[in-house]
Write a protein that binds this DNA or RNA. Structure first.
Lengths: 152, 152
DNA sequence: AATGAAAATGAACGTGATTTTCAATTTCAT
DNA sequence: ATGAAATTGAAAATCACGTTCATTTTCATT
């Protein structure tokens, strides 16, 4: 059975909160974990529908929220109005290609420590952060450069 | 007359684009410049209404977009689904208090240069970035600590 | 000052993502 | 097996924002 650990995490969370285990929740967790990267509710809905044609959009939204509460998923908002979900793991930051939509994750300990230093300077305690670099990835950069007007 | 420079910038932009100067646009610019920090369309709408009770929400949205185009304002999206506007000025990043909503701006050259270095490593060209630290400001931190359960 | 074409306004309606409502169904401790 | 509590899903509501379009304003030109 796939995603043993996460499924157990969910079960534990459900038990602790007097919530119930349902096939919909299991299915959504499975699809979510099987998807790579940063999925939208719509993507999850479409994929889950293949196995469970009667599942509702509502349930997807509710379950994704649940997975966030259970610490299995986390919400991300990039520059559009759409909520994306990623598998919860350690702090990391993102490179987002504005042309093709590619998203790359990176980590940088140096930036992390500098952040805390700056926050302290203003009396803040940092709980979480968001750090996103928007631009063009290698491919798109080349295409943009070629497509652009070449200098006379 | 307040906000001389900005008003002139707007006038120049309107002329250059064959757009018209209207009392609504003037009023919205004025309110926007008079407000501190990071305002929402709603806040601007409410304040402008006091002087111009018939102004519509639509006009506020349109005008804020116009001010962005004219380089006087810039859009910001923090963690919620609401668009905020700030007076346009050089790149800077934000500290956001999750409890009282206070927003502090900061700049850090070191982080900026590190960003480019990282991007280059992944073949990206950075066009813009977003860097936000979420946590508790000095006041809220104290209140949270006092209100919380003290260790036995 | 009057004209009129182009632009702006605002009320109502549309949209897209997400949430709420609620009657019907499912889970699970007993 | 039972039933109280939780869950589901379809439809309607919401929320922020965009579009439409008939009416009003602006402003260069008379």
């Amino acid at each position: 059975m796939p995603h043993e650990v996460e499924r157990r995490t969910l079960t534990r969370y459900l038990e602790e909160h007097s919530l119930k285990q349902t096939k919909q929740r299991d299915a959504i967790l499975d699809i979510f974990l099987g998807a790579t990267g940063h999925v939208t509710s719509e993507e999850i809905f479409n994929r889950v529908r293949k196995k469970h044609p009667n599942i509702g959009y509502t349930t997807v939204y509710r379950t994704m929220k649940l997975l966030c509460d259970a610490g299995l998923a986390s919400e991300r908002h990039f520059d559009d109005a759409i909520t994306r979900y990623e598998i919860a793991h350690e702090h990391h930051d993102h490179l987002v290609c504005l042309r093709c939509g590619k998203i790359v994750e990176f980590e940088c300990a140096m930036i992390e420590s500098t952040q805390n230093e700056i926050a302290a300077r203003y009396g803040f305690r940092v709980l979480r952060h968001r750090h996103e670099l928007y631009g063009h990835c290698g491919n798109c950069r080349d295409e943009v450069d070629l497509g652009g007007r070449t200098p006379s």
